[in-house]
Simulated scan of single mutants.
Amino acid sequence: MEGMGDNTRNQAGVSRPLTTTATILGKKWHPLIVAELLEAGPLGFNDLKERVTGISDKVLSESLDDLEERDLVERTVLDDKPVRVEYSLTEWGEQLELVVTVMEEWGERYLAARDE
Rank of each mutant, 00 (worst) to 15 (best):
E2G: 10
G3I: 04
D6E: 14
T8H: 02
R9Q: 06
R9L: 13
Q11L: 06
A12K: 15
A12I: 14
G13Q: 09
S15W: 07
S15Y: 14
S15K: 13
R16T: 06
R16M: 05
P17W: 10
L18D: 12
T20S: 05
A22V: 13
T23Y: 11
I24S: 04
I24P: 02
I24D: 03
L25Q: 01
L25G: 04
K27H: 14
K28W: 09
H30M: 04
P31L: 04
L32P: 02
L32V: 11
L32E: 11
V34K: 01
E36W: 04
E36R: 15
L37F: 03
L38A: 02
L38K: 04
L38T: 00
L38N: 05
E39W: 07
E39I: 09
A40S: 14
A40Y: 13
A40E: 12
G41W: 08
P42T: 11
L43D: 07
L43K: 10
L43N: 06
L43S: 10
L43G: 06
G44Q: 08
N46G: 08
D47S: 13
D47G: 11
L48A: 11
K49S: 12
K49E: 14
K49C: 06
E50L: 08
R51Q: 09
T53S: 11
G54K: 10
I55C: 00
I55S: 02
I55A: 00
D57P: 00
D57L: 01
K58G: 09
K58R: 15
V59T: 15
L60S: 03
L60D: 04
L60E: 03
S61R: 15
E62A: 05
L64Y: 04
L64T: 04
D66S: 14
D66C: 00
L67S: 01
L67G: 03
E68H: 09
E68F: 05
E69Q: 12
E69F: 11
E69S: 15
R70Y: 15
R70E: 12
R70W: 12
V73K: 00
E74S: 09
R75W: 01
D79G: 05
D79E: 10
D80T: 15
D80P: 05
K81N: 13
K81H: 12
P82D: 02
P82V: 03
V85C: 00
V85S: 02
V85M: 02
E86F: 00
S88M: 07
L89V: 02
L89C: 03
T90S: 07
T90E: 00
W92N: 10
G93R: 06
E94L: 10
E97V: 04
E97Q: 10
L98T: 15
V99S: 08
V100S: 14
V100T: 15
M103F: 07
M103N: 12
E104A: 13
W106H: 15
W106T: 15
G107V: 14
A113I: 05
A113E: 07
R114P: 00
D115N: 13
E116L: 00
